[in-house]
Write a protein that binds this DNA or RNA. Structure first.
Lengths: 180, 180
DNA sequence: AAATTTATGTCAGCCATGTTGACATATTTT
DNA sequence: AAAATATGTCAACATGGCTGACATAAATTT
């Protein structure tokens, strides 16, 4: 990819464009906005991070929405639908669609709650567990490689940064979900 | 939210479900997979991080795809369409749709390249710059608050972690884009 | 000069996944 | 008995990905 930043003599003349209005030629700069590198790195890191499981998913005919559901059901077997909704921050209908597919294809099962029989507790089947692990592996590898050269203190710092990016009101809930 | 982790006596009896096959009741554990906390924190951090500009976008009738385009055009005025595609990793058609809307509504303009007249260089209009800044502010605030209690060395560590999550083959390109 | 490559745009259609609103059922709580 | 809760479902719609095919203008190569 060629350098995006234009030299002065490369800036196209505005007069050449009959219909051109005024345009802004100076960039929003990362020097003046020290948060920008973090904002953009978060974008690029997530872009690549979530693309890892795509091949595996395609093999099953599933998408990223299925991945998220399979992951959290495997991390918390017996999770309630309501809790899954609260984690994913999507609507019941959106979840219902992918959940139904995962149940119909035998990756997740619903068991009626023993205490509260209104609840449909979600469990992975052995196939669901296997799928979850296959989706997890490439991401573990990516994160593991990133952590490789970092000391325990540095890892803790990276973890702390990510926690602080999460909504304040969600942090405790996330901490409980993650288990620390 | 109630604790998701069930006690043993809360696990519903499988015998109660006539059609129930075997299910897996033990979780994929973060103790055995030290990368999992990072994987999940990245999910939650990004989930909240990208929701910041939603209100602003709704006021303009735009979505998150418009945000990404407006952001990078403002960060790199005069960027070529091909470079934008390479950043966003989407297809020409997907970009074309939102780009056309942003041009039609006067937030972005295209100027013919002076050297290579095949190119359509993208510039923000003053309105486009204003929109970019309005979208940027809440994210700057979120990241700024996260960085607040971190030393320069810790900030560098968080930044390094994010860089290492990015595809190896993309890191240099991203470094150039970010300007360091 | 002609042929090829490149940068971009566009049409048509499809798919995944998000949304709202309304309503139904079973179960628990009051 | 009534109200609240957990879940499911139907219908419709919006956003934003995708593929494949084709068109145009301009630059590059032969």
């Amino acid at each position: 990819m060629a350098d995006i930043n234009l030299k002065d003599d490369e800036i196209p003349s505005l007069r050449r464009e009959s219909a051109a209005g005024r345009v802004v030629t100076h960039p929003i700069s990362a020097e003046e906005n020290p948060e920008i590198p973090f904002i953009e790195l978060l974008f690029f890191a997530y872009r690549d991070f979530v693309s890892d499981p795509d091949e595996v998913l395609a093999g099953y005919g599933f998408g990223r929405a299925h991945h998220r559901v399979v992951h959290f059901v495997n991390r918390h077997p017996g999770i309630r639908v309501a809790d899954l909704l609260d984690i994913l921050k999507i609507t019941k209908q959106s979840l219902g669609r992918v959940l139904k597919q995962l149940i119909d294809t035998g990756f997740i099962e619903q068991l009626t709650g023993a205490q509260d029989r209104r609840q449909r507790l979600l469990y992975p089947t052995p196939a669901g567990r296997e799928l979850a692990l296959r989706l997890l592996h490439p991401q573990e590898h990516r994160i593991g490689a990133a952590l490789e050269g970092m000391s325990p203190a540095e890892r803790a710092t990276a973890e702390r940064f990510l926690r602080l990016v999460i909504d304040r009101g969600e942090r405790e809930k996330v901490a409980r979900l993650i288990g620390r």
